[in-house]
Computed example of a mutant assay.
Amino acid sequence: MKSFLKHKGIASGIFMMVFYQVVMIVIFMSGYSAIPKNVDQLTVSIVNEDAQYGDEFVKQMQEQLPLKVIMDDSLDHAKKQLDDRSSHLLIHIPADFSQKLSEQGEQAKLEFFINQSNPASVVSTVQSVADQISNQMSSQLLAQSTQGALQSLNVPEEQSKQMTEAIQNKFAASIVMTNQPPAGMHNQMAPMFLTMSIYAAAMIYSMMSIGALNELKSKLGKWKAFMSLQGVNVLLSLILPLIGISIYFAVQGYGFETFVHMWLTQSLEMFAAIEFTSIFCILLGQAGMLVNLPILLSQTVSNGAVMPQDMMPGFFKAVSHVTPMFYNVQLVYNNLFGGGRTGYYVLGLALVAVGALVINTVIHAIKGGKSEAVQEAAEPSGTQQPPAAQPIMM
Score class of each variant (00 low, 15 high):
S278H: 06
S145F: 11
A356Q: 02
F193V: 09
S209G: 06
S228M: 06
L238E: 10
E63W: 07
V26T: 13
P241M: 01
S218D: 05
L67I: 05
F28W: 12
I295Y: 03
Q330A: 05
I279M: 07
A373R: 08
A350S: 04
I93V: 15
M208E: 00
S206V: 07
K80M: 04
F57G: 12
V374F: 03
V306A: 14
L5E: 06
A34V: 07
S174N: 15
L82P: 08
I25H: 05
W263G: 04
I239N: 11
Q144M: 13
S12P: 10
I46T: 12
S246T: 15
V232F: 09
S86T: 03
L216P: 02
G211F: 02
T178W: 00
D83I: 00
G343W: 01
S117Y: 02
L238S: 07
E63N: 06
I366M: 09
M163E: 11
M262E: 14
G285N: 05
F193W: 12
S381C: 00
P181Q: 03
G369P: 12
V354Q: 05
Q99N: 14
Q107F: 01
E379N: 14
G304W: 01
I279G: 07
S267Y: 05
F113M: 08
H92V: 15
K37F: 01
L141Q: 15
S30T: 13
A273P: 03
I35Q: 08
V123I: 08
K2L: 11
H321K: 10
K68P: 08
G314D: 13
Q330P: 05
V22Y: 04
M312V: 02
M192Y: 14
T300Q: 08
T195M: 04
L357K: 11
G211A: 07
L65E: 06
G255R: 02
I366W: 14
W263M: 06
P313C: 05
A51T: 15
V126G: 04
F315D: 04
F97D: 03
S74G: 08
I167H: 11
Q330M: 07
L90C: 09
L42S: 02
K6P: 01
